[in-house]
Design a binder for these strands. Sequence first.
DNA 1: AAGACGGGGTG
DNA 2: CACCCAGTCTT
Length: 325
Amino acid sequence: MLQQTQVDTVIPYFERFIRAFPDVPALAAADQQAVLKLWEGLGYYSRARNLHKTAQLLVAQHDGELPGDIEALRRLPGFGPYTTAAVGSIAFGYPVPVVDGNVLRVFCRFWGIATDIRQPRLRTELQTRLTPFIAAAPPSAFNQAMMEVGALVCRPQAPRCNACPLQADCVAFQTGRTAELPVKSARKPVPHHQIVAGIVWKDEKFLLARRRQDQMLGGLWVFPGGKSKPGEAPATTLRREVHAKTGLRIRVGFPYCRVEHGYTHFKITLTAYRCEWRSGEAKALTSDEVRWVSLQEIGTYPLPKANHKVLEAVRDYERMQGNAG
DNA sequence: AAGACGGGGTG
DNA sequence: CACCCAGTCTT
């Protein structure tokens, strides 16, 4: 959960998650839907899919326990360089330094390194350079101390150098370059897409599609729809996309709402239309599964944030009309 | 070595 | 708005 997500954001998710799945066998036995539901809103859903996969793998191959050597840890789904080092050092005491976003910043400043921190090789270089030092302390304490210094003292903006235990030997501090280091190249501008989604009603239920595992938002349920072509009328897009993805013919009604949402590498304006089924049997043509769901049943389905915003508008309207909810 | 991959918190 | 976050996986 802590991969690319701040501790304060994670805490409530962690509490709920660990209450539902107190140990590895409990997680392994759960349905992916239930796991994703507890991850809903946290983002980077591959973390949840990998954690679940790893739990099942541990039960099947390692008696439900984590393997105790670094190479075996590294092979587990979701265990990259950081998590392998964190678990290896904190759980098993191996002297392997962790390099997270905090450590990267601390030592770019400390050693005056001006390499773009987007460069992947910088992480391995720092891990190598830190290895001689970790032997001087309990690895668990060393790693957590370095991350903590980054989070609380050597902050991105306005670092608290006067409270820093590394100040005396810090190149950035000595040379007055704490504001210039670390160096980070500008991110490319993100495209903005117009998306239309259909809430397709049939007999008090609407259609949801479960996105394929290897897609963005894989395993989550979404309203069918897709990207508008330039200048294309929304109803045209929607009829085309819904037919291509589910095989249904629909009647497009009015928009329930418009939602702005930002992802890591693009932005969307999502317009959600009330639609009615006309003909055809729903098929999972581009998804793993399609299902007719009522407003009463939807609570157990994990949805991405943008679809949740849509759902609220749907609820409000249908409640007002005294329909199906 | 690049991109893809979510969402929230902060100034 | 922009930047950041206890990164990982696929090309």
